[in-house]
Every structure is written in structure tokens, then in C-alpha cells.
């Protein structure tokens, strides 16, 4: 081989950019992406059913319920779980890590590139789905600004879940199961307990961002109880902080952690 160019001195960006590009390509083509797209069509269909059978009044109740329950309680955690755990575990399962982690770039650059690609892919799926749902529900009596608040809640909750589940996947190859247990077991359970404890869940802050919704006041009151929702600024801060802390800790941990595959001598 001719060595016409001097060997490069790769930096953080050298690891980040190719990882981001490849992460985006694989996130969109993998099976779970396709499954998610199918699942994401469900809320639009629910709202369409409400529009066809109940009229504008029913639509005013259905849309907030769909955003609260289907998006924030189900789709956002599941998207965060699937895409977040995939950042490391997909490559671990495919036997790619020995190649990726012996490159002359910081491991954190590879993980950050892949994490942001996963976030972008998941966000695109959710935004597209929510936009279609809101379009189908246009004219619903839910108060002004609800679509914007719903979009904000989804877009701030997603990075928090995704980063938390990516962080979890550094510790265990069973992160998908553990994350599922957290999102649909523990968090749901904690959210039911009256008092301050529900403030330790991500869903509390995600729901707080929806603010007052004319059609679903009863549902929100039942959820927030006497404590009421967090202020939008606090809710956004907690969700963003969780996302940043999660990805920061993941990068720090990956830098010093070895990933022993099942096959070894």
C-alpha cells in the first residue's frame, strides 16, 4: 500500500461524525424502526376514530388523552428504550465493539455520535407521528397552544428517556428488559403514589409541560393530585438535565469500561 498521506491525528470530531452518520443510517433501517413507525400510526387512528364517531366535543377529550397516555406514557418511553439501548447493545450484539473501541478516537466520541443519531431518528418518528395526529385532530377544543405544548413535551421527554436507557445499557445487556420494567412498571407505580414521590418520575415532568388542557382537566388533576404540575421551566430543566447527565455519565463510563462478549476463550 502506498503511504502518500501522513497518518492523521484524529480528534473527537473524527470519531463523532462517522458514528453519527452510520448511527442515523442503521437507526432508520433496523427492524425496530419499522415496528415503531407502525406503532406510531396508532394515535392518529385513535384520533380519527374519535373524530368520525364523536364529533368535535369527543375529539376535545380524545386528543389530550392520546397525547398524555399514548405518547407520553407509552410511545416516548418505548422510543427512548428501543433507540437508547441500541446505541451500545446493537453494536455489542453484532460483534462491532472490538473494532469501534480500538480506533484512535475517544470512545465517548463514538457513543455521542451514535446517541445523537438515535435521538434524531427517534425524534423524527415521533414528530412525524404527532404532526399527523394533530392534523387529524385539527379543530379539537383543547385550548390554544396545546399542539405546541404537546410537541415540546414529546421533544423534551424523549432525550431524557433515551439518555437514561443508554446509560442503563452500559451496565447490562438486559437493559431492554430493565428499561421496560422501569417505564411500564416502576414509573407507572410511582406515579400512582400520592405525594412528593411522583416527582421523582420523568413522566411527571413531561406531563407538566402540557399545562392546562380544557378537555382533560380531570385527568390531569387525577395525575398531579394536590401537588399540581411542575412549572414549565422546572419541567423542561429536569428533562434536559436528565438527558445531559445521562449522556455525560454514559460517555464517562464507556471510556473506562470493557465490554466482554459472550464468546471468549
Amino acid at each position: 500500500m502506498t503511504a502518500s498521506s501522513p497518518a492523521p491525528r484524529p480528534g473527537f470530531l473524527s470519531g463523532f461524525a462517522p458514528s453519527f452518520t452510520r448511527g442515523l443510517a442503521t437507526a432508520i433501517t433496523v427492524k425496530k424502526g419499522l415496528i415503531l413507525v407502525v406503532v406510531l400510526a396508532v394515535p392518529a387512528l385513535l384520533v380519527l376514530a374519535a373524530r368520525l364517531h364523536g364529533g368535535p366535543r369527543a375529539l376535545g377529550h380524545a386528543l389530550p388523552a392520546v397525547v398524555l397516555v399514548v405518547y407520553l406514557q407509552f410511545l416516548v418511553p418505548i422510543a427512548g428504550l428501543l433507540f437508547g439501548t441500541g446505541v451500545i447493545l446493537d453494536d455489542a450484539g453484532a460483534g462491532n465493539l472490538p473494532y469501534l473501541f480500538t480506533r484512535p478516537v475517544p470512545r465517548s466520541a463514538v457513543v455521542l455520535g451514535k446517541s445523537l443519531a438515535a435521538l434524531l431518528a427517534a425524534a423524527l418518528c415521533l414528530v412525524l407521528s404527532l404532526a399527523v395526529t394533530l392534523l387529524v385532530a385539527r379543530g379539537a377544543r383543547v385550548g390554544t397552544g396545546f399542539p405546541g405544548r404537546a410537541m415540546t413535551a414529546v421533544l423534551l421527554a424523549l432525550p431524557a428517556y433515551l439518555a437514561a436507557f443508554t446509560f442503563l445499557s452500559v451496565f447490562t445487556r438486559w437493559a431492554l428488559v430493565a428499561g421496560f420494567f422501569y417505564a411500564f412498571g416502576l414509573e407507572f407505580f410511582l406515579g400512582m403514589i400520592p405525594g412528593m414521590i411522583r416527582k421523582s418520575t420523568l413522566i411527571y415532568y413531561a406531563r407538566s409541560l402540557l399545562g392546562e388542557v380544557s378537555g382533560s382537566r380531570g385527568m390531569l388533576r387525577a395525575f398531579f393530585g394536590r401537588e399540581g404540575p411542575a412549572s414549565p421551566a422546572l419541567a423542561a430543566g429536569v428533562l434536559l438535565g436528565t438527558a445531559l447527565l445521562g449522556i455525560l455519565l454514559t460517555c464517562l463510563l464507556v471510556a473506562g469500561k470493557e465490554f466482554v462478549s459472550a464468546e471468549r476463550e
Binding site: 491525528r9 453484532a94 460483534g95 472490538p98 473494532y99 480500538t102 475517544p106
Partner: peptide, 17 residues
């Protein structure tokens, strides 16, 4: 990374990318 610039590694596993 400083050392990995100077190293080529061919792992044993048959599954990759």
C-alpha cells in the same frame, strides 16, 4: 487513542458489521 493510531487489530470473531 494515541496507541491505537499505531496499531492494527484483527479480532477473532466472525460476526461484524
Amino acid at each position: 487513542p494515541r496507541l491505537h493510531r499505531r496499531m492494527g487489530y484483527c479480532p477473532e470473531g466472525d460476526r461484524f458489521f
